[in-house]
Amino acid sequence: MLELRLVQGSLLKKVLDAIKELVNDANFDCSSTGFSLQAMDSSHVALVALLLRSEGFEHYRCDRNISMGMNLNNMAKMLKCAGNDDIITIKADDGGDTVTFMFESPTQDKISDFEMKLMDIDSEHLGIPEAEYHAIVKMPSSEFARICRDLSSIGDTVVISVTKEGVKFSTKGDIGAANIVCRQNTSVDKPEEATVIEMNEPVSLTFALRYMNSFTKATPLSNTVSISLSNELPVVVEYKIAEMGYVRFYLAPKIEEDEEETKPQV
């Protein structure tokens, strides 16, 4: 038996919009601590990890750990039918093969019940170790989205380098090259407009812009984004979800050819 009632239903709509481009089908895992999801894109280059902690729900009941396989496009279609102010309740019965989304209008005068068929998805779960990152950049999410969009009109890949000077995003393409440097900036009126750079060691990594652009679909979830970089690890792009959790995107870097030869491969 599962019953999760989320007063701010629009959050769930935004979460789906953030991840459905990257992943088609995924298992939502539900336990007493929260509602979560981990899924890779079909080419296993990017991974999305979502967590909505149980405290963030008005009512949260989950009797045992279960996972529900859903087609994210279909789920998004159903959630589109919910109003932005609606309260969304997710319900499922043990052993059932459907999940029900219930939408209540704020005035309680309209209740909609959408039932969706579940799927059997055999997905690979990856263990993500806690890591100390060489550099963490926090910046306004809209700024990051803008940078990714602008750069992708010039090239396919972005080099993100963090130095004492700031964080530099650069690309090269057939028509030319582009460099955008953002410096630390904490003297702003609102804290969410600040750019904060924590750096232990300078880093420089190359990523495919196509994926970065797809991550920025999560921009409506949060005013700020944090980008964690380490030289030997995938980048983490995290959008916090107000008071209740996060959407994190992991992206494997592009690797220099000769480095790869010496690396043990799986």
């Binding site: 981990q38 750990n65 279960i66 996972s67 499922a92 052993g95 990856l126 263990g127 494997a252």
Partner: peptide
């Protein structure tokens, strides 16, 4: 790069409802 070269597969503790 592929994610599997950085993160290793684990088993998911949840039981599929279906």
């Amino acid at each position: 790069g592929r994610l599997e070269s950085f993160f290793k597969p684990t088993t998911n503790p949840s039981v599929p409802i279906k």
